[in-house]
Amino acid sequence: MDPNSDDPAREGKLELSSRTDVVDVRQKVRELCKSLNFSLSETTRVVTATSELARNIIEFAGYGKISWSLISEQNRTGAGAEKGLELVFKDEGPGIDDLEWAMRDGTSTGDGLGKGLPGAEKLMDEMDVKTDPESGTRITVKKWSSSGRE
């Protein structure tokens, strides 16, 4: 369980092509959070954000991939490495037309999915969205184990 070892299970990929896959992806992410000793609240935040982003892929692109990796970063204080989880949600769908609008809290596509992006951003420590109509959308989110929240 040493996060710094070259364990092959430090990263992996999951495919998303149907709504049933969303449940499997949530389960996998929950296991990863447990392996990082995230608290139940942190785990629930990460799994919920995963659910929103995975559902967006099914809804708007139909197919996509999620890659996960266990990451670590030297603390600013130099007091050791901080552990975290990085998830990349990638699809080749139509892209997000108006990203600024989609990121605004409370924005809805009429399907109630408007909480997806701003919601995921709130629940994670970091989020980066790259989108264009040619290559689709790539959303990277991160959660650190000691993010200073309860």
Binding site: L40, S41, T48, G106, K115, K122, L123
Partner: peptide
């Protein structure tokens, strides 16, 4: 459950 209440509130659900 408590963790769900926390997350749902943060999401505004």
């Amino acid at each position: 459950p408590p963790a769900v209440a926390v997350t749902a509130t943060e999401l505004g659900l």
